[in-house]
Simulated scan of single mutants.
Amino acid sequence: MSMILTAAQVVTPARILAPGWLHLDGDRIVEVGEGTPPRAPDLDLGDMTVSPGFVDLHVHGGGGAAFDTGTAESGAAVVAAHLSHGTTSIAASLVTDTPERMAAAVRELALLVDDGVLAGVHLEGPWLSPHRSGAHQPGALTEPDPGAVEALLGAGDPSTGSGRRGAVRMVTLAPELPGGTDAVRLLTDVGVVAAVGHTDATYDQARVAIDAGARVGTHLFNAMRPLHHREPGAVGALLESPAHVELIADGVHLHPAVLRTVFAAKPGRCILVTDAMAAAGAPDGDYLLGPMEVEVRGGVARLASEDGDGPIAGSTLTMDAAVRYAVRTAGLPLVDVLHAASTAPAAAWGLADVGALAPGRRADLVVLDDGLEVVRVMRGGTWVGP
């Protein structure tokens, strides 16, 4: 069904149209314009802002459920929890576990990728630095042997068994590990995004990985060798490269000044992610992140410990809250923040069908009020929440 929507603001990749309008036909965007639409609108959203649907490339769970269980039911629960907060394209991120359990989860989640429920699977481990393991089980970390890499990729592509991307769209690894650079090349050759993360890499080691094809930095600064003026490490290498960088804008992982600095240093290449675990959109309590026990207190997730001060274990963030924090607390321009929440992540993964309000794209929209709270969500031309 064809319809025209109008709103005080319509956010395109380049600028905000004020006022703006969208012409939708079925599940597609047909036209986007500024000022008066070609005919009377079917729906006038008044003072609202219409943003592209959010794209979150790094999510472990939400709504009390987690992707690590690898079941369709839990996966659907996570998707529904984040959809109500404006995320219309979502990746299933898996933390380090045994190869058998990770492969089993990939196989099950691949079914949701095939059905269009998930944008893809992100493997965060097991090829991570033991010195920067964060909330990953240290004893399960391994070096990226080519056979092991191909086996996990193959679990997401049962038709071939190996050698193709399949459901796995991104792999986070520490490139300084033995075989790390070769793994980056292997991933790049089959169309998988190689991401640098949970790494103790020096600047030179990170540069080698970027030159080999790595093009995303996983939750920049967190679980990385700190930036130092005499040894910039992976942070320095990523900041000066063309790579996209993930940022967790929750007030726990990064200081707002760091957000401002990175947005200024990498215009158009910043990606907001939630790194959300099961407690996102759910109460405080005790949860699991893969095999690791997590305590959530005051909305902050940490590995369970006697003193309650264990390592940060993901977040309880939703993307709409990340947008509000980046705009209100960090003071970043709305158009740049919404670009980082939609257009940039879609570009990083080559998702040509989503991430922008542009002709031909899927009709994925988030309607925000003047407080940047989610009022309505559309996915594929259908209103779905909240």
Score class of each variant (00 low, 15 high):
Leu239Gly: 05
Ser241Asn: 09
Glu293His: 12
Ala279Gly: 04
Gly197Arg: 07
Ala167Thr: 14
Lys266His: 02
Gly233Cys: 11
His198Tyr: 10
Pro242Trp: 04
Pro178Phe: 02
Pro291Ala: 04
Ala265Val: 13
Pro283Cys: 00
Gly197Gln: 08
Phe221Tyr: 15
Gly268Ala: 03
His244Lys: 04
Thr172Gly: 01
Arg225Ala: 13
Pro232Asp: 01
Gly290His: 02
Arg269Met: 09
Leu289Gln: 04
Thr188Lys: 14
Val216Arg: 05
Thr188Gly: 14
Gly217Leu: 11
Arg185Cys: 03
Leu247Ala: 00
Ala257Pro: 00
Val171Tyr: 06
Gly191Glu: 10
Ser159Tyr: 01
Ala212Gly: 08
His229Trp: 12
Arg164Glu: 11
Ala183His: 14
Pro283Val: 01
Ala278Gly: 06
Asp275Gln: 05
Leu186Asp: 14
Gly290Phe: 02
Glu240Leu: 11
Thr172Ala: 02
Phe221Val: 15
Asp204Leu: 14
Phe221Leu: 15
Ala279Pro: 04
Leu173His: 04
Glu246Ser: 02
Val296Phe: 01
Pro175Met: 02
Asp275Tyr: 06
Ala257Val: 15
Gly217Tyr: 07
Pro283Thr: 04
Ile271Ser: 00
Ala276Glu: 03
Pro291Glu: 13
Asp204Thr: 15
Asp211Gln: 15
Gly180Pro: 06
Ala214Tyr: 10
Val184Thr: 09
Ala194Asn: 08
Thr181Asp: 13
Leu187Met: 13
Glu176Val: 06
Gly298Ser: 04
Val245Ile: 14
Glu293Thr: 10
Pro175Ser: 00
Gly233Arg: 10
Leu177Pro: 05
His198Pro: 07
Gly251Ile: 10
Asn222Glu: 08
His229Ile: 11
His219Pro: 05
His229Tyr: 12
Leu247Asn: 02
Arg164Gly: 05
Ala155Val: 13
Glu293Gln: 10
Ala223Thr: 09
Ala195Met: 07
Gly156Cys: 12
Thr199Phe: 07
Gly290Arg: 10
Ala280Tyr: 01
Arg269Tyr: 01
Pro158Met: 01
Ser159Cys: 00
Arg207Glu: 15
Gly197Thr: 09
Glu246Ile: 03
Glu176Cys: 04
Gln205Thr: 07
Gln205Phe: 06
Met170Asp: 00
Leu186Gln: 15
